[in-house]
């Protein structure tokens, strides 16, 4: 079954078509890297998948349901450009908040588990505004993974992470893939992405230029796809 089916998506900002007739599907358990230069439409497409934007035309089915269906949203974990946590709450309060909103049976246990997995358990009671940038990013990762989502939508997940945090995120993504979750990530950090992605999609100015299994050439030369199909 398709985890995500994108069917003829058009999205305009004013008169400008940010996405033009995007059509592809991602099977359950796949890891797709969504590639493209700045302004190609990656973030817009991820936001539509996450139910944060409505397309003008077309439809996105997630696990065979509408992307705004509450059951669909309960199965999605999202990391966007912002970290999505509150500065004036503590790390634990933030995770408890989202644990309750996602209807977890034991939000406190889940929150403590993810604080431990992201090495934030020793600052669980500290306010997020006192955190370093890296700690805030790790908390954002904990928030997105808290409810064991079956689909992860990650927009530039490696940005502003140090090498240790990148390794942590990669291992969490790997664990998610091993338990059958689907991962879709947009990124400019091709080397990090190619370690996990088995499928790639390339957007150029709102058009889907390539979609399929990761070409073998990309392992040696991550920019191969850009040079072959897109803008060099």
């Amino acid at each position: 079954m398709s985890a995500v089916a994108v069917e003829g998506i058009w999205k305009y900002y004013g008169d400008y078509p940010a996405l033009r007739n995007i059509e592809f599907s991602v099977r359950e358990g796949q890891c797709l890297a969504l590639l493209g230069r700045n302004g190609a439409g990656k973030t817009t497409l991820l936001r539509i998948m996450a139910g944060l934007l409505r397309p003008q035309r077309g439809e996105i089915r997630i696990l065979d349901k509408d992307s705004r269906h509450p059951q669909t949203r309960a199965s999605i974990g999202v990391i966007g450009h912002g970290i999505g946590v509150y500065d004036e709450l503590s790390a634990l309060e933030n995770l408890l908040l989202f644990g309750r909103l996602y209807g977890l049976n034991d939000p406190h246990a889940a929150a403590m588990e993810w604080l431990r997995r992201t090495s934030l358990d020793n600052v669980a009671g500290s306010l997020v505004r006192e955190f370093s940038r890296g700690m805030r990013q790790r908390l954002a990762v904990a928030r997105a993974f808290l409810h064991n989502p079956s689909l992860l939508l990650l927009d530039e997940p490696f940005t502003s992470l140090d090498d240790r945090a990148i390794a942590l995120l990669q291992s969490l993504m790997q664990s998610a893939l091993e338990r059958g979750a689907t991962v879709i990530m947009s990124t400019h950090q091709l080397r990090e992405a190619m370690q996990l992605a088995t499928y790639v999609a390339l957007l150029v100015r709102g058009k889907l230029i390539f979609h399929g299994e990761r070409p073998a050439e990309m392992l040696q030369d991550p920019t191969w796809l850009y040079r072959t199909y897109g803008e060099s």
């Binding site: 936001r47 996450a50 139910g51 944060l52 509450p70 059951q71 949203r73 309960a74 999605i76 999202v78 966007g80 450009h81 912002g82 970290i83 999505g84 946590v85 509150y86 500065d87 989202f98 909103l101 996602y102 209807g103 805030r136 928030r143």
Partner: peptide, 15 residues
Amino acid sequence: LGNDCLDALVSSPIP
């Protein structure tokens, strides 16, 4: 708006 928290809320399963 700070930290894009609205996106985190709207993408959660809360109606």
